[in-house]
Simulated scan of single mutants.
Amino acid sequence: MTQTRDIHHFEHLLDKHHLKKTAPRLRVLSMMSSRHTATSQPDLESLMHDIDRVTLYRILNAFEEKGIIHKVFDLDGTANYALCSSNCNEHDHHDEHLHFNCTQCKNVYCLNDLNLPAINLPVGFEPHGFTLYAQGLCPKCSKKAVKK
């Protein structure tokens, strides 16, 4: 039942952003929503053998342009992708949240529920968005470090 509900949600999401409902797009959305971390294109390729590299690149590019996903870089400079909030669109992304890079497992986490302080820029600066990074150990790696 949950999988059917998710597919309907993904189909609605593609309709909302005026994208065709193709099996590869639905699979990418399903895969990304099942993960608790941002995911790189190479990681998605290794998980989704039936979608070729070019098709996956085009899907990720279209999703980013439409405001379905956002790009965040890990400590090595590799682009990772995470689902956007429901109020993002192609003209207005709202992914201003903390991105946490774990120095141990190398996962990138979107910490959406933190209350971030307002950023007051000097006069004349016009922000179009911002990215905030933190690095350290995620809860899983912290527990492993304590046990050692």
Rank of each mutant, 00 (worst) to 15 (best):
Tyr81Cys: 04
Leu114Pro: 09
Pro24Asp: 05
Leu111Asn: 15
Ser142Met: 09
Gln41His: 03
Leu137Thr: 06
Gly77Ala: 05
Lys21Ala: 14
Ser33Leu: 15
Arg25Thr: 06
Asn80Ser: 08
Asp74Phe: 00
Asn87Phe: 04
Ile68Phe: 03
Thr22Asn: 01
Cys141Asp: 05
Glu90Thr: 00
Thr78Leu: 07
Leu116Ile: 12
Asp113Cys: 11
Thr37Lys: 14
Thr103Gln: 11
Leu14Asn: 12
Asn101Trp: 13
Val108Gln: 09
Lys66Gly: 05
Ala23Pro: 00
Asn101Arg: 13
Asn107Ser: 12
Asp95Phe: 10
Leu60Met: 06
Met31Ser: 12
Pro117Glu: 09
Glu45His: 12
Thr39Phe: 06
Pro139Lys: 02
Gly67Tyr: 09
Phe73Lys: 08
Asp43His: 08
Ser85Glu: 14
Cys88Pro: 05
Pro139Gly: 09
Thr22His: 04
Thr22Gln: 04
Glu96Val: 00
Asn80Glu: 07
Gly77Thr: 02
His18Ser: 08
Cys88Ser: 13
Phe73Leu: 05
His94Thr: 08
Gly124Ile: 01
Pro139Ile: 01
His17Ala: 02
Val123Phe: 15
Met48Val: 04
Arg58Phe: 13
Val146Leu: 15
Ser40Tyr: 01
Ala38Met: 13
Glu126Thr: 15
Leu29Thr: 07
Phe63Trp: 00
Glu65Gln: 15
His17Val: 01
Thr78Met: 14
Leu83Trp: 07
Pro42Glu: 10
Ile59His: 00
Leu116Glu: 08
Glu64Met: 09
Arg35Ser: 10
Met31Arg: 06
Ala82Gly: 06
His18Arg: 02
Thr39Val: 15
Val28Lys: 00
Thr131Gln: 13
Lys106Tyr: 03
Asn87Ala: 04
Leu132Asn: 13
Gln104Ser: 15
His36Asn: 14
Pro24Cys: 04
His70Ile: 07
Ser46Tyr: 05
Leu75Ser: 14
Cys102Asp: 10
Arg58Ala: 04
Ala82Asp: 12
His70Pro: 00
